[in-house]
Structure formats: C-alpha cells, structure tokens
Simulated scan of single mutants.
Amino acid sequence: MPHAASPPSQHDLWNGPAGDAWVQAQSLLDGMFAGFEPVLADPIAAEPDARVLDVGCGTGALCLAIADRQGPQGRCSGVDISAPMIAVARERALAAGKAIDFTVGDAQQHPFAPASLDRIVSRFGVMFFDDPVRAFGNLRRALRRGGRLHAIAWRSPADNPFMTTAERAAASLLTLPARAEGGPGQFAFADAGVVRKILDDSGWDHIDIAPLDVECSIARDALPTYVSLLGPVGQALRAEGLDPDLRQGVLSTVVDAFAPFVRGDRVVFTAACWSIRAA
C-alpha cells in the first residue's frame, strides 16, 4: 500500500490540495451544507446594518446568504487562510453584485480593528486553529461590547458516521494519515468541555454549547466526485503516482460503502454538530 506523507501545515493544506479540492467541489458543498445557512444567517436579517464577520468563510456561501438577508445596508466580511477559496468568494460576490469584503488571513493573528464587529459567525471554520485560545482571544477583541459569536463545529466521529465512511472503506486499500488527536482538524471541537475551556480561557462570556443536528444531502451521482475530492481519501486518490487501477478500485469500493445513506437519487445524512454561542 502507498505510504502517507507527513501532514502539511494548515496554511499549506488550504493553499494547496485541500483548498483546490474545495474550490472544485464548491457547488456540491454549497448544496450539501445549505441547511446551515438559515441557522446562522436568518437571525442577522433583524440587524440589517450589523457588521458581520464570517470566520473560515471558504468560497463565500454563508457571506452571500447573510448579504441577501441584510440588503443594501449590510456590512458583511469574510476571512479565510485559503487564497484559492477567497479568490472564488470574491468572484461570486462580484457576480452577485454584493459588496462583501473578503480577506486572505489567519484569524488567530489577523489585525482586526478592535471593537469593530457586531456579529462573528462561522460554519465549520473554527476547528483548524493551531492555537485556538489565541484565535478566539483575537476575535473577542474585534467584537464590540454587546456583540455575539455563533459558530458551528462537528461533534465526534462516532456521531458522524457519514464523514468517516470513506476512510473506513479504504482502510484495507490505502495507508491514510491518522486524524490528529487534539490537533487542528475536522473533529477538533468534538468535546464540548474542551470548547468551553477554550472560550473561557480566551475571555468569552455567556457561553452556550448545544447539540445541533441538520439533515444534509447530495445527489447520488455526485458521490464519486465527493469521494475523489474531499477528505483523506480524496487527498490520497489525487496523489501523483497512484496506480490507476488501484485508484479505480478504491473509488468503487468507497462509493459502494455509502449504500446505507442512499435514498433514491439522493445521499442523505445527519450532520451532528455543536451550536456554539458566546458574547
């Protein structure tokens, strides 16, 4: 079996293979996670002139949803470490006629203006900090008095079998990098107690962490694209030098492993998350 290389830094990952894959899968991912938009964006409709920052904004779907709800008075911005994804976000905002400020930057050290924001939101963007206490402290200083944070993060792998199906199915065919325990990554915020301590240590108050389950889906015929682009298996399948027959065999095996989630022409799963609020 091919051997996995040591994991790249978050900056290199999201400005390299992972960022490129998310750009290619933009429309698939926007549809998959559309159910989170009303959770994060609808409350902002009542604050049309609020200054809102989306942390880990990716290709801009949530910012666009917020801008739609705010209307012409809106002041929405997004920050992400991935230059490829920010480039797409800017193109999408321009095409939609939305004045959204997108910045390439690391939110754990970016020099945000103090007390300049009313709302900070994030959909799966806060689990990748090398130093989460530093990151949330930096974000807290950017929030005005009375401002609020609302972030969504994944619960545990056990709560999200869809998200680990590909890895489990490919385990006998590929050597994949182990998910780092306690380090930055998709499930870094699986433990609500750890998240609460991070927020406590970085100066946040009124912390509320509650389970949030959202039904998500993709088209059944999009499964090969999903598998070949995203996650550790997608990264392995895109590796240079991988035997084409092995690649096709892994892809076929992994796609078949998603059978329990197939409902007609859709693949349906529950995203088991934390809704994280603080002020």
Rank of each mutant, 00 (worst) to 15 (best):
D54Y: 01
G185M: 07
L251Q: 11
C76E: 03
V104K: 08
G146T: 11
G183V: 07
E47N: 10
F269T: 02
P157S: 12
R123A: 11
A34T: 05
V255N: 03
S82P: 06
A67Q: 04
D131Q: 11
D191W: 02
A166T: 07
H110C: 05
Q73C: 12
S9G: 13
G35A: 14
L149K: 04
E181G: 03
V88Y: 02
V23W: 13
P7W: 03
W154N: 04
P211L: 08
H150S: 13
A61W: 00
E167D: 14
F258T: 09
L62V: 06
A45F: 08
R141W: 01
F258H: 13
V250G: 03
R196Q: 15
A151T: 00
A278M: 08
M85C: 10
N15K: 13
A113G: 04
A46R: 15
A180F: 01
A279F: 00
L246K: 09
S82N: 12
I218A: 08
D213H: 15
F261Y: 15
T175A: 15
A87E: 13
P38A: 12
P2D: 05
G185A: 08
L229V: 05
A257F: 10
I209N: 07
D130H: 08
A279C: 10
L223G: 01
A18C: 03
L230G: 01
G146E: 10
F189N: 09
V133N: 07
P224T: 09
V55R: 01
A153W: 00
A151V: 13
V126D: 00
V133K: 08
L143Y: 02
W154Y: 14
T270K: 04
D131I: 03
V133T: 14
G241W: 14
L223I: 03
G241N: 14
Q109F: 06
I81C: 04
G185N: 08
P111C: 13
A210Y: 06
M1R: 14
L173M: 15
F129K: 03
G146K: 11
A142H: 12
S77P: 00
Q26R: 15
N15T: 05
R51M: 10
P8E: 01
R119P: 06
V79A: 02
G249M: 11
A257G: 13
P157D: 11
P38I: 09
D54K: 00
D159F: 08
L174Q: 04
A41L: 03
G193Y: 07
G125E: 01
W154E: 01
N138K: 14
Q248I: 01
A67P: 01
F187Y: 01
E215F: 02
T270F: 05
A113F: 06
